[in-house]
């Protein structure tokens, strides 16, 4: 990765990840959950990270906030937030950066809220901790405004989490995450375990908030269809590596990596009935003993002998999309 991309289109990316490696040290050996991932997030951009369970997408999202869990550790790489490496911050500085500049919408809305605190107290807690010196009354008023912004009634402020439905809890989390107008929002599978209608409502809320606050969003998910409704760009992860990164239109119409192709094809369709239902053949690899060469080659329909020997480079194609696959080694796609 060269530094030329930093001033891509003349704008400084709000978040730059450079050769990030997050490994879990286990007794059985080193698990490479995130292995040499680089990407840029432009201001106001919506980027989706997709992949099967165990592909490293959640570890990557958590590492960006330095919330990855031990024995996981960042072995190498840089995470530049507005040009400053957050890996150089001490724990207290990092704590202040979270929520204020980079905020999380957590995965399990059921467990992310404190069950014995009223909603408004939980949100005010975060505001006060990050230096909001306003009076209690003003803060209360502010919280009601935040809740209204995500389409909730102001009365929700006085409720406890168990009085809310799953979709409402998820929207409370979105309200919390955007309370301090952060530059970057990380949403980790924000709609898992929600009904389709509620899921759509949560995604619309997140989208509207993104537009209003101008934050950039990284959303982690496993459903291509859902991500296509939200994102500007989609990054596909497989076995700890980013294997493709491109605009949502290109990804849907013309996925490049064979794995992305299979992911797109496995999205159930309402247009045509299939004679036989198919998933992606084979199982995702164990991260502890990855196949040699390209991690996907044992499951890949277009694998060649080269694929089991040489790891393909993550390279940019002339149309600015990125792919890590030997099929595109001499490619002029999109030129």
């Amino acid at each position: 990765m060269t530094t030329t991309r930093i001033i891509d289109d003349g704008v400084l990316p709000v978040l730059q990840i450079r050769n990030l490696k997050v490994y879990y040290g286990t007794e059985a050996g080193e698990v490479k959950a995130v292995d040499d991932v680089s990407l840029d997030l432009q201001p106001k951009e919506r980027l989706a990270l997709v992949g099967e369970s165990g592909s490293g997408k959640t570890t990557l999202a958590m590492a960006i906030m330095r919330l990855h869990k031990p024995p996981g550790r960042i072995v190498d790489g840089e995470i530049l937030l507005n040009g400053n490496d957050i890996l150089d911050l001490d724990e207290e500085e990092m704590r202040m950066t979270r929520l204020a500049e980079i905020a999380l919408v957590a995965q399990a809305a059921m467990n992310a809220l404190n069950p014995v605190m009223r909603i408004e107290d939980q949100i005010i807690d975060g505001l006060v901790d990050h230096g909001d010196k306003r009076k209690k009354n003003e803060l209360r008023e502010h919280v009601r405004g935040l809740l209204e912004r995500v389409g909730l009634e102001p009365e929700v402020a006085n409720m406890f989490p168990h009085e809310l439905s799953g979709g409402m809890k998820q929207r409370v989390l979105i309200a919390t995450a955007t309370a301090l107008n952060p530059m970057v929002i990380i949403a980790d599978e924000p709609t898992t375990a929600l009904d389709v209608v509620v899921q759509r409502q949560v995604m619309i809320t997140l989208g509207r908030l993104q537009k209003e606050t101008g934050a950039a969003v990284i959303i982690v998910g496993h459903e291509m269809g859902l991500m296509g409704q939200f994102a500007d760009r989609i990054g596909v992860m497989y076995a700890g590596k980013l294997v493709e990164l491109g605009s949502v239109e290109q990804m849907v119409k013309e996925p490049r990596h064979p794995y992305s192709k299979l992911l797109i094809e496995s999205v159930p369709d309402l247009n045509e009935k299939r004679e036989k239902l198919t998933g992606i053949p084979g199982m995702p690899p164990a991260l502890i003993e990855l196949p040699t060469g390209c991690g996907f080659h044992p499951r890949c329909p277009s694998a060649t002998p080269k694929c089991s020997e040489i790891t393909p480079k993550f390279q940019q194609l002339p149309d600015k999309s990125w792919v890590a696959c030997h099929l595109f080694d001499d490619s002029k796609v999109g030129a």
Binding site: G167, R200, Q201, R208, V252, V267
Partner: peptide, 20 residues
């Protein structure tokens, strides 16, 4: 409400919906 691949990013152009 079923996310479909055809017609990306259509949801936000629609009006408000109410859940159960």
């Amino acid at each position: 409400s079923i996310p479909q691949l055809r017609g990306v990013r259509e949801w936000e152009n629609e009006g408000e919906i109410r859940s159960l």
